[in-house]
Design a protein around this nucleic acid. Structure first.
Lengths: 339, 339
DNA sequence: GAACGTTGCTGAAACGCTTCAGCAGAATCA
DNA sequence: TGATTCTGCTGAAGCGTTTCAGCAACGTTC
């Protein structure tokens, strides 16, 4: 390991001169051009690399942020969120650490977070319990944080999420424009912000269009869904001609039931999902879906976090950022069948 | 921030005594029971947390490993691999850092890896270029590494992968047992280890069963796939009755073409995929698939890495670990249609 | 009662960096 | 010419740990 001292010795100068030059603080006219050059050259020749740990303990700052997530299995958007966070973090020379509550106790996560003097924390958390415990501890340790793609769990920090309600509205209008009048909404029973937001979007749009809302809230996340089967089994004149799903996953579950009953998508039934990830593309009929900007959300969250790291006082005010979603028509939505 | 010194002062003793006790090195009979108790109590009362950075620079060891991946968008198994790695890492009190080559230059990743004195690196890399550059640098810096779910890129370290070939064999046998005789294999042209391994499994099984192999290697990863369409358009007596896909994704692409041509799955066409993640479950007809043990692979990789960290000399020998895959019958494979 | 062990604790160096006071010498100014 | 400012550089302290030599005090042994 080449240290500052090694470089200083090789360049025939002092450790502080080397540090100053290598950190680009030489511009203040403190170090002569010739010595500066000499230091840079020897540092490169020796393959010097700053020991960030030592720097961190000297400065009291670490260029590391963390993502804490309680995402369960098969979490689709994990990669996308990650990618966005990393994109922005690495642009600012920050590294990212990951903690999953499913694989580590809260206590041990906390231990790591403060033990390694993590600069700030991004939460992607569904379970309020997890979040509030950790947030309280972080407040005590003065570590900034915020949440991404979840409900706000505190009146401090910030929240970045997608603006879901208009997305579902757009989906309903899209179907309406295609001639659909019996549009069923399909979600499940969970007390999560996004469930309410999207359902609300559906209600609003249906009302404005003068249509009768029809909401199926499955009791469980995993099927089968008898209510849906019942709707699909009705005669063609009364059966829904379109289903908007809370998620791509649910839209595909609807696809499954339609398939069983030999309803053809999109000829007999149009389908619109929500999320816009791989599921939508790999459906037998590419799914029309409302795309959430997961990468952007990760990026935005990171930016807000870095801002809080630089200005801890801003933790006091709570800031919400809702990023727009976009309807992305696939092949699963088409003109309504003739009545 | 409460430091060792603060605790020492409060407990009326020396810094070294506190360090000794708090690290559990007091058992050697070096510290009296009474003082030990006193230190523990005051440390707890003051909310002391060891600054891992300082410890790392003092000991020269960091309890951090990294995952470097060049996984592109929509990478399905990223979460699973991650979860496995984290599971094992956190059991050993290690933290995990993530680097994606798509969002950061190799130089900057390297800078981070050695700058923060990362203990070891797990690669999940498809592009050989990325891997070898980084590996050479890591060798120079004496940082242990290994690859997970990719081809070996070096004769040092280790490789953990799934044992794909028997998985495809099992898939073919499964279909054969269901009466299928015209079984087409569907992959794409890419020079990747897993492509060869799985194709080989198909060839072997077909040969042993006395069947004629029929392989479609798409030129592109994204469809449409005219070859497949042609096969599916053939009359019932000559058309394949089953397709084994290189991945779940490709199996679903086949589903898509079947859907267009009104071939019913599994009545007219059986389908088996490979990977066994969310895609398989959310298909309209739950996909029969060969499940890869991504979490286990992550865990195993981490264990091997930690072993290399403790015994750097073992980097010299190359070790391969192939974990078994398992056929998981869904509803997309059934008895072959009557001829 | 001298030599030696053991027990229990402390002090200080070291890890690799940053930062700041300070010191020469040169340049500028009154 | 003496005072002041600027330029260019160094030395040392400090960040929070670990670790090890060393030192009392006491007990044991011969």
């Amino acid at each position: 390991m080449v240290t500052l001292r090694d470089v200083a010795k090789a360049a025939g100068t002092s450790v502080s001169a080397v540090s100053t030059v290598l950190n680009g603080r030489a511009e203040a006219g403190r170090i002569g051009a010739e010595l500066q050059k000499r230091i840079e050259v020897t540092a490169r020749d020796l393959g010097y690399r700053c020991n960030q740990l030592a720097r961190s303990i000297a400065t009291g700052l670490t260029r590391t942020i963390a993502l804490v997530s309680d995402a369960g299995e098969h979490c689709e958007y994990f990669y996308e969120l990650n990618a966005g966070i990393l994109d922005s973090a690495s642009a600012h020379q920050y590294a990212l650490k990951i903690y999953l509550t499913a694989h580590q106790s809260l206590a041990s996560i906390l231990e790591h977070l403060v033990g390694e003097r993590t600069g700030g924390v991004l939460f992607h958390i569904v379970n309020p319990g997890c979040a509030t415990t950790l947030m309280k501890a972080l407040d005590r340790e003065q570590i900034p944080y915020g949440v991404v793609n979840t409900a706000p769990f505190s009146r401090r920090g910030f929240r970045v999420d997608s603006d879901d309600s208009p997305g579902v509205e757009a989906a309903v209008r899209h179907l309406h424009k295609l001639g659909h009048r019996r549009i069923t909404y399909f979600d499940y029973n969970q007390e999560v912000a996004s469930i309410y937001a999207r359902r609300e979007g559906y209600r609003t749009a249906m009302e404005q269009l003068g249509l009768i809302p029809d909401i199926i809230s499955a009791l469980e996340m995993n099927g089968p869904y008898p209510e849906l089967q019942r709707r699909f089994s009705a005669p063609a004149g009364t059966r829904p001609t379109a289903v908007v799903g809370y998620s791509d996953m649910l839209a595909l579950k609807a696809f499954g039931h339609a398939y069983e009953l030999d309803l053809k998508v999109p000829a007999d039934l149009s389908l619109v999902g929500f999320a816009g990830l791989s599921l939508a593309d790999f459906s037998p009929v590419p799914l029309s879906t409302v795309k959430q900007p997961f990468q952007d959300m990760g990026r935005r969250g990171t930016e807000l976090l870095l801002e809080r790291i630089d200005h801890p006082e801003r933790m006091a005010e709570f800031h919400t950022d809702l990023l727009p979603v976009m309807l992305s028509p696939g092949k699963s939505s088409a003109a309504a069948p003739n009545p």
